[in-house]
Simulated assay, not measured.
Amino acid sequence: MSWGQPVRIPADIEQEDRIVGGFTARQLAILGGTGGILYTAYLIIGDRVPLAMCAVVALPVGILGVLVAIGRRDGVPLDRYLLAAVRYQRSPKSLVPAPGKAAPAPSWVAARSDPRPAPLRLPARGVANDGLIDLGPDGVAAVAEVSTVSFALRTPEEQDALVSVFGGWLNSLSGPAQILVRAERVDLTETITTLVENARGLPHPALTDAAHKHAAFLADISARHDLLRRQVLLVIREPSAKGRDAAAARALRRLDEAARLLSACGLTVRPLDAPATGALLASCFDPAAPPTSEIEFAAQDEVITRGERR
């Protein structure tokens, strides 16, 4: 039995199909639309305008159509990039949390020419008690923090084993998954306080003095530098076609499978509970805020005031 020649799969499986002459259907539609507009304009005004004048006007339009069809910016097709820019310019810039529509401004607010705020639509509806993020019609998402390993310090055989185990986990994926690497601010206040308090019970004065010097060293570093640490997150998403409970069970089961498979690489997968997930989502809105800052929320009808420092 002959299996025939092997089929080569392109590296980019989401690449659009080439229809004619290396152009995709989208590019052909743009080029055809540009040509149709120019031809229609020539049929309308060609008898009344000299041919040279028609060519002068049609040349920039044709070049613009070709650029929009084949051009790219930051890996995005130029037509989609321009459409996103137009959509951004037309979309409201002032967004407020509102379940339905934004409430009208109070009468004492001088609403001159400022546009009315629009409701803020967030993909996350809330965080459940089990730490899962409710995405509404898009299902649920489970977030876990993953430890790291030193790949460069391993031998070639160990590196091959790590890649093999990681590739096996990728091949076992049965749904959407995201690996997010983010920088998180580090607050050493608690560490310094604990170090100073424990220094009092050390058996030798030299150890106490060394502990105080180390605490001063950490305080100096924290005051002069913005300390960051790398955090690796694994996000598992499951659609809620069969109900939220079934999606939550599948998401948690996939996290357990990831923890079991990645443990062979020396990685620890720790699912985030509800408080940790809520803190993670809150930090995404203001990444530069110190982790110890307290956030106060105003009531719906409460007037927000800001004091000035003197």
Rank of each mutant, 00 (worst) to 15 (best):
P176L: 04
E308W: 13
Q300S: 11
E184S: 03
R72I: 02
F285W: 08
T268P: 03
L195G: 00
A55P: 00
I19P: 04
L170Y: 02
V269D: 11
L227A: 09
L281D: 01
E14P: 01
A142F: 04
A11W: 13
N171M: 11
L162T: 12
S113D: 08
E158A: 05
V196R: 15
R229E: 12
L135G: 00
P50K: 05
V269H: 09
A241H: 13
L162V: 14
T194M: 08
L267D: 06
T193G: 07
A85R: 10
R254Q: 15
R254H: 11
T148Q: 15
C265T: 06
D187S: 08
S263D: 15
P271C: 08
R250L: 10
A102L: 05
R154L: 13
V61M: 10
H212D: 07
D74G: 07
R224V: 06
A58C: 01
L83N: 02
V235E: 00
A110N: 12
G22V: 04
L38K: 00
G22E: 04
P287L: 07
C265V: 05
A249V: 05
P77H: 10
E294A: 08
A219E: 14
V49D: 01
Y42E: 07
A103V: 14
P137R: 13
K101W: 15
R200G: 10
L31W: 02
A279N: 12
V57A: 14
C265N: 13
A298G: 10
A215H: 12
R87P: 00
I179V: 11
P205S: 09
P10R: 12
E294I: 07
F217G: 15
F217N: 15
R125S: 14
P239E: 09
F166Q: 04
D17H: 14
G22M: 06
T148E: 15
V49K: 01
D134Q: 08
E158S: 01
L83R: 07
R18P: 05
A282H: 05
P119D: 08
E158P: 00
W169P: 07
G201T: 11
P290W: 01
L59A: 13
S172F: 10
R87W: 02
F297D: 09
L228W: 09
D47E: 11
F23R: 14
D226V: 15
A219W: 07
Q89D: 04
A152N: 06
I295T: 15
D209L: 12
L267E: 05
G33N: 10
G22L: 05
V49N: 01
A259L: 07
V86S: 02
V232M: 11
V86M: 06
V165A: 14
P239L: 04
V61G: 07
L51R: 11
A211F: 06
R244D: 03
A84H: 04
P117A: 03
V196L: 15
I30M: 13
L262C: 09
A161V: 07
L135D: 01
R224I: 04
L135R: 04
R90P: 00
G131A: 02
P137V: 05
R80W: 14
A279Q: 13
I304E: 08
V7P: 03
S263I: 05
A144L: 08
Q89A: 10
L43Q: 09
G278D: 08
P271N: 06
L95F: 02
